[in-house]
Design a binder for these strands. Structure first.
Lengths: 350, 350
DNA sequence: CTGAAAGCGCTTACAG
DNA sequence: CTGAAAGCGCTTACAG
């Protein structure tokens, strides 16, 4: 007589195929046939079984079926991202979901948070649930712990960052070439004194971008000057402080290269505060959200994030489908989008 | 003799507990005991089993174990989001992950994309994989399809939007009160002609915010004027167009209320283009990314997104743990953050 | 076309 | 303390 929903609708046990069989007066195997739309069951029986399933509210247990099924597939993949909440990870995740959805594959996701042990824990959690494959943005610098799993037949594709001490497929962005092109863009606009603000040196993409910077300077015959270079920046406030310090130094740069979007934001904030946003040039790696609202617009090297996710997912599913080709390493191009901040002329303009 | 990794390391079948038992000269049951760290196994046997497991690279199959286990738990939950890639969904997802991670629970996630059938497909996909619970941001307006599942014992919590035609827990933002407070803020700053730009009328949160707007006008004795009200805006460009049109009209508003962040962006773009960003006041629901870079700063009603996710996850796990309390509906407050755009004085300033 | 038996990889319930 | 048998919900392999 209670009005509480929990009491009115007590928990019932979920019906099984066996119970559907009993109600429909047929066998377990026939119910299985009907549920899987297998041909060769009398229409009359099909109707009876479906009616019984409906009456009992039967819901198939996909997990149980995959245990016995020959292919052993769970139609599930695991995705290890840097941080689910950051825009890069979220866009990657979305692109992967798109491909998985088309195949009826469910997606586990988790944040690695630049933590090596978290990476291993997440991988283990997904493996113990027998995912059909893994897509990984690694944090650690040794993925040999996945060797056994790979040999056991679980395909895996690395995105954004390459695997280390493990032979596996990867899809990366042209970080070296992109950063190099960005710095050359500044040089072509008359700059020779170009500061570099970079991310953690433990992140391979950060190292590659930094190499691109140095290579561009080298080719232009510009000496590397560590007084206007700062790596290991994480938050935008850090970048803001460093930018302020560099701008106030005796021999300030006429241009700045920011190795990722949070750093670009910090640089822009410092430039705005000094009122230098129209005098000091800026090129950044990665777009900044709401970039349209900022003046001058940020000239940025734009990655094809959804392209990375799509390619990774397609490579993974090709492996899951049994492709046994040699390990593949794909690299996606970066596009330089001119919006104003990178076209501010320098003192050496021709 | 091939150097191809795929040939050097052929796919092996994954070892089972039975094989570990055989190698260690013990029984399946004893291996199970060791793997689950059950007390009461001779240290010598434990060592032998662990050695064998290591030799064979045994990896436990959590899915298989949960099939037979009494609690039946898969230590897995499913999360249905609006769109994994949007910042709101991503922040929600992250907060949920945090709680799940602490319990060793893996998280399935998917995008509903404001599509009713997609919502049902995702729910079915997660249910067929026997998740322990569901956290749902619904798109449709009838969740009765989940009634059976709920009765079968799968806990579910709705976030951001309430369930319809289904009695279930929910965690919502104070949309009505928040919008009302935002409009009252504008009124207090001397505005009486306040435009309203809103989201899809099919979204309950959009309707609630609109009601808050109307209620604030009512209480201030301001007549509702549909010529400066526009609902069903989705992209920021749409909001930009409508704002431009309204600003160019004979009797333009002195203030604008934007019902969500994409709309705020469109309004800001239009105001900037007209050079009216310091003359027309603006209050928006939800923060805008990189808001620090915009002048004047956006005065916004800020939701506690991670609070929503955390509360939803905690309520879900309480149910999973067996709590059988009455359905709970929690509402989280919104904070008005003054940053400049909402404090621009209107003609009726006292 | 239909179904009884065996088995997927584990845990449970029970016996020794 | 250890293990043989049964069973979780399904599919496979085979017989009729």
């Amino acid at each position: 007589m209670s009005v509480n929903g929990n009491v009115e609708f007590p928990t019932r046990t979920r019906p099984t195929m066996r119970e559907v069989a009993a109600l429909s007066g047929t066998s377990l195997k026939t119910v299985s046939r009907v549920m899987n739309n297998e041909a060769g069951v009398t229409p009359a029986l099909v109707a009876k079984v479906k009616q019984a399933a409906l009456t009992l509210n039967y819901q198939p247990n996909f997990t149980a079926s995959s245990l016995r099924r020959n292919d052993g597939k769970t139609n599930t993949i695991g995705v290890l991202l840097e941080d689910i909440a950051n825009p890069f990870s979220a866009a990657l995740h979305r692109a992967i979901e798109e491909v998985a959805r088309a195949r009826g594959v469910a997606v586990f996701a988790g944040s690695v948070d630049e933590d090596e042990s978290r990476e291993q824990e997440l991988a283990a959690a997904f493996i113990s649930r027998r995912v059909d494959g893994l897509i990984i943005v690694p944090a650690g610098h040794d993925q040999s712990y996945l060797k056994i799993e790979k040999q056991s037949g679980t395909p895996m594709v690395f995105v954004d960052r390459p695997p280390a001490l493990l032979d596996a497929d990867s899809v990366l962005t042209a970080n070296f070439e992109g950063a190099k092109a960005g710095v050359e863009h500044l040089i072509n606009h008359g700059h020779r004194r170009i500061a570099y603000l970079g991310d953690l040196e433990t992140i391979t993409t950060a190292v590659d971008r930094f190499s691109g910077y140095k290579d561009a300077l080298d080719r232009a015959g510009i000496a590397f000057d560590e007084s206007i270079v700062q790596m290991n920046l994480r938050a935008s406030v850090d970048a803001e402080h460093v930018t302020s310090k560099i701008l106030a130094s005796p021999n300030p740069p006429t241009a700045i290269f920011a190795s990722q979007n949070l750093i670009s934001v910090g640089v822009m904030q410092a430039l705005h505060r000094f009122g230098l946003q129209y005098s000091v040039a800026l090129v950044g790696f990665d777009d900044v959200p709401m970039v349209e609202l900022i003046e001058p617009g940020l000239t940025a090297l734009v990655q094809n994030i959804s392209g990375l996710g799509k390619a990774a997912a397609e490579m993974l599913f090709a492996r899951i489908d049994g492709t046994n080709a040699a390990t593949e390493h794909r690299v996606l191009d970066v596009v330089l989008r001119e919006r104003g901040s990178g076209e501010i002329p320098g003192p050496h303009e021709k």
